[in-house]
């Protein structure tokens, strides 16, 4: 399996990652070689999804895990841009 430079660009855009032109070329060959390796799993039969174990619910009940606001300042202090108690971002729409 090999992927094209266009596919690398599309993947980078979907992944929200910028690449230099040199990186685009090296990613193309490296990702192709990794995909070539992992593709061996398509050579054999490993059953169906019905054979997979069942999941169980591990979610907790709704409710506050800590006192409201206990970590707000520490968390906000890590934001690269803030305004008061808000994280500042550029306009979305």
């Amino acid at each position: 399996m090999s992927i094209s430079v266009e596919e690398v660009r599309k993947l980078a855009a979907l992944s929200r990652i910028s690449l230099s032109p040199e990186e685009e070329a090296s990613m193309q060959s490296e990702i192709s070689s990794i995909l070539g390796y992992v593709e061996q799993i398509n050579k054999a039969d490993f059953g169906t999804d019905a054979d997979l174990p069942e999941h169980r619910n591990v979610w907790r009940e709704d409710g506050e895990v800590n006192e409201s606001g206990a970590y707000s300042e520490a968390l906000l202090a890590n934001a690269p841009a803030r305004e008061g108690d808000y994280v500042k971002v550029k306009k979305i729409l």
Binding site: V8, L11, A12, L14, S15, R16, I17, S18, L19, E23, M27, E30, I31, I34, L35
Partner: peptide, 17 residues
């Protein structure tokens, strides 16, 4: 993400995508 993440991390994100 392009400047802050190294090449291997970006490679794995793209592979995963």
């Amino acid at each position: 993400r392009g400047e802050g993440l190294g090449k291997e991390v970006r490679r794995r994100i793209m592979l995963g995508t």
